[in-house]
């Protein structure tokens, strides 16, 4: 760890990191508490949108101030994660819909163009 820090920086980074961790934990907590798959699919997006965003922002601010130059490469992780998570969730949701329809489970909407089954 570093020896000396301005007080405002440590408070700002602390608030951002703890807030982001709390949001991420809330999402993963939802993974345990929610009853079915379609509800649970909303849980990880909290970690990838705002939870992750706050923690990466804290990292960017911390390294920019302590290294005395602009460090924004956390932005790449943020962009990558926010763009790819919807893709994986959509693929997973479509796979689940497909499997639920084949198994004939209740509570699943029929295929929208209807001629497949």
């Amino acid at each position: 760890m570093i020896d000396d820090l301005p007080l405002w920086l440590s408070i700002l980074v602390s608030v951002l990191v703890v807030g982001g961790a709390l949001l991420t934990m809330a999402g993963c907590f939802g993974m345990v508490r929610l009853q079915n798959f379609y509800l649970r699919i909303h849980a990880p997006t909290m970690g990838t949108s705002m939870g992750g965003g706050l923690i990466l922002l804290a990292s960017a601010i911390y390294f920019t101030i302590t290294r005395d130059r602009l460090i924004v490469h956390e932005m790449i992780i943020f962009l990558f994660v926010t763009v790819t998570t919807p893709v994986t969730l959509m693929l997973l949701a479509r796979a689940t819909l497909f499997r639920d329809r084949i198994e004939g489970n209740d509570g699943v909407p029929k295929r929208i163009n209807g001629d497949q089954q």
């Binding site: 760890m1 570093i2 020896d3 000396d4 820090l5 301005p6 007080l7 920086l9 440590s10 408070i11 980074v13 602390s14 608030v15 990191v17 703890v18 982001g20 961790a21 709390l22 991420t24 934990m25 999402g27 993963c28 907590f29 993974m31 345990v32 970690g47 923690i55």
Partner: peptide, 24 residues
């Protein structure tokens, strides 16, 4: 002082994230 604040809040955040990992 400010280092201690950062130290403990990072510890708290890592604790929360570990709980999240356990939940998943």
């Amino acid at each position: 002082m400010s280092v201690a604040i950062l130290h403990w809040s990072l510890l708290a955040a890592q604790f929360l994230l570990s709980i999240a990992m356990l939940a998943t």
